[in-house]
Design a protein around this nucleic acid. Structure first.
Length: 224
DNA sequence: CCAGACGTTGTT
DNA sequence: GTCTGG
DNA sequence: CCAGACGTTGTT
DNA sequence: GTCTGG
């Protein structure tokens, strides 16, 4: 669940919309695209000076046999693995939508795009840490997205969903505190979700781009 | 079945 | 089936 | 998360 | 998320 999400094509608007000083001019984070685990994405946090900043982070903590890119909000505060992160390193993951695949008994899994009514851009609750990139063996800032129980129409598709923050809660979520503000991780009201079932063509179009692959808008042009 | 771990570096 | 790449 | 590959020798 | 141990 929430194994993929979407970011704005123009990353520069993130600085404005999340009230950060950074202009993101240094980001080379691709075009309109799905974000997949393992990719590097813009994340909002408080820097050492207490200012909001946008940082490029890798999505998912790679372990020897798997990658942890989601963390259950219910258990994160007591989990040995997540505890330190949720207390000391909370962040916001900007998104315009997230994707889910319906768990069907057999056959293809229908793909859905989920957005928030009246909010073209929103922030998912995240946590981060410095983590070794298994390929480069370098330490990199790395994040995971907190999840909660799904409800209502969402439950028809999947039983979990990403924790979406209220814009008025961004400050409290990022602020350093003795105890993590878990009360901000409310279940996303069902009526606020826009759920679109993607037809196979749309689903493929939304797939993550391969390196050096032209953006979707040019595919049709190149191939007539 | 559930609970708990889940990797490394390097040090508040 | 499992692993890797996106 | 899904989609796609999934090996080796050795050079037309 | 997924695996292991109890």
């Amino acid at each position: 669940m929430c194994g993929r999400y979407e970011t704005p094509e123009d990353k520069r608007i993130l600085a404005e919309r999340f009230s950060t000083r950074a202009t993101l001019q240094d980001f080379q984070l691709g075009r309109i695209n799905e974000c997949s685990p393992g990719s590097v994405q813009p994340v909002v946090l408080l820097n050492d000076e207490g200012e909001r900043e946008i940082v490029a982070m890798r999505w998912g903590f790679t372990l020897p046999d798997r990658s942890l890119f989601l963390a259950r909000s219910e258990g994160a505060a007591t989990s040995p693995f997540w505890k330190e992160m949720i207390i000391e390193r909370r962040c916001i993951v900007p998104a315009t939508a997230f994707f889910e695949w319906q768990n069907t008994k057999s056959g293809p899994k229908p793909k859905y795009k989920l957005g928030l009514s009246g909010r073209d851009l929103f922030g998912m609750a995240g946590i981060w840490a410095s983590w070794k990139n298994p390929k480069t063996l370098e330490l990199e800032p790395t994040f995971a997205i907190l999840t909660g129980e799904a409800n209502g129409a969402m439950r028809q598709i999947h039983d979990r969903q990403p924790a979406v923050l209220d814009p008025g809660d961004y400050e409290e979520w990022l602020a350093q505190d003795d105890r993590p503000p878990l009360h901000l991780l409310r279940i996303l009201p069902d009526e606020h979700l826009t759920i679109t079932r993607l037809d196979p063509v749309e689903a493929i179009r939304a797939e993550p781009l391969k390196q050096d692959e032209p953006p979707p808008a040019q595919r049709g042009f190149l191939f007539g």
